[in-house]
Simulated scan of single mutants.
Amino acid sequence: MGTAPALIDPFGRAVTYIRVSVTDRCDFRCVYCMSEDMTFLPKRDLLTLEELDRLCTAFVDKGTRKIRITGGEPLVRRGIMTLFQSLSRHLDSGALDEITVTTNGSQLARYAKDLAACGVRRINVSLDTLDADKFRRITRWGDLKKVLEGIDAAQAAGLHVKLNAVALAGVNEDEFVPMIRWAHGRGIDITFIEVMPLGEIEGQRADQYLPLSKVRADLMDHFTLRDSSYQTGGPARYVTAEETGGRIGFITPLTHNFCESCNRVRLTCTGTLYMCLGQEDAADLRAPLRASESNDLLNAAIERAILRKPKGHDFIIDRTTRQPAVGRHMSVTGG
C-alpha cells in the first residue's frame, strides 16, 4: 500500500528515499570526515524541527517510502526525539515503510528505547575500530566504551544494528577480520565504506584511501564469501560469510560507481536539497517552504529539483592536486 512514486528523475529512477541531515554538528571529529577545528552553521540558519517535519511530509506525500535521519550526529540535536515522534505518524498510516538513523553511537544508551518507541527498527552505527586507543585517534574526541554501551542498549531495545566501517589504509585494515567475527557473533551486519573525497581535512585522503576490492580479496583468505541478494535500499552490495552466517556489505563510490539504481536525495539541515552526494548542484527548499503556508511552491521546487538529478557522481581521489572532489564536508550533506 502507500502512495505511488511521484518523483521520477530524468533517467527513469523513482526517488523514494530521502536522507535528512538534522544538524551539521557532531561530538566526534573523525579524521576522514572533519577538521579538528570545525566552524559549524549558526543555529539560526537551521530549519526548525517543525520545518523538517513539514519537508519530510511533503516528500512522503510524493511517494517517499524511507527516511534516514543523519547529521553530523543527529542525536545531539536538541529536542530531536520530537521529530521522530512526529514522523512516526507516517509509519502508523502506512505511508512510510521505515525511518532509520545513522549515528556514531555516542548517545544511543540514552535514546535507544525512545527510538524504538517511535517505530525505528534499524539503525546504522559508524564504528571503524574496536581498539579504544585507535578509536580515540580516529574520532579525536570519541569514547569507545560509550559507543559499545550504546550498541548494547540498541540491541536490548530490539533495534537491528548494522555497523559502518570506513576502510583506512594503514589504520584499521588489520582489524577487519576480528571486527566481522565480533559483529556477526552479536547478530550484527557490517558494511565497509571507501573513504569519500568530501571537504578539506588536515590529512590527505590519497594516503587514507583503501580500495574495497583489496579488502574483499583479503577477506577471502579467512571467509567463504557468497554474493547475497539482500538489500536495504542503500548503495551497499552484500555477501554472506559462510563461516559466520552473517552479512558483509561493501560501499564502493570509487572502485565501483553505484549510481545506476540510485533512488536517493539528501536534504540538509538548512533546507538545501542535494540530488547527488558527489555533485555540487543543489536546490533551495527553505525559501519556498517559508514563503507560504501552502505547499504549492515547495512541491514545485521539489519537482524541478528531481528533474536535475544527475546520472551519477564523479568521485575520484585526486593524487595530483590532492583536493577533495567536493568542497563541502560530509557532515554538511548528511552521512
Rank of each mutant, 00 (worst) to 15 (best):
A6Y: 02
L7H: 10
T23S: 10
R29G: 09
C30G: 11
F40M: 06
F40R: 04
P42L: 03
K43G: 11
L46I: 00
E51H: 05
L52N: 02
T57V: 09
T57W: 03
K62Q: 15
K62N: 15
R68Q: 08
I69C: 02
E73A: 05
E73I: 05
V76P: 04
G79T: 02
L83I: 05
S86T: 15
L87C: 08
S88E: 05
E98R: 14
L108Y: 01
K113M: 00
V120I: 05
L130C: 01
R136Q: 14
R136C: 04
V147Q: 11
L148W: 01
A153E: 04
A157K: 11
G158N: 11
L159C: 03
K162V: 01
A167I: 01
V171F: 09
V171M: 05
E173W: 02
P178Q: 11
R181L: 12
R186T: 06
G187P: 11
I190N: 04
G199V: 02
I201K: 03
G203N: 10
Y209L: 10
D227Q: 14
T232S: 06
G234T: 03
A236F: 00
T240E: 13
A241D: 05
G246N: 02
G249K: 00
L254N: 01
T255D: 07
C269R: 04
Q279G: 09
A282Y: 00
D296G: 03
R304V: 11
P310K: 03
A325Y: 12
G335C: 07
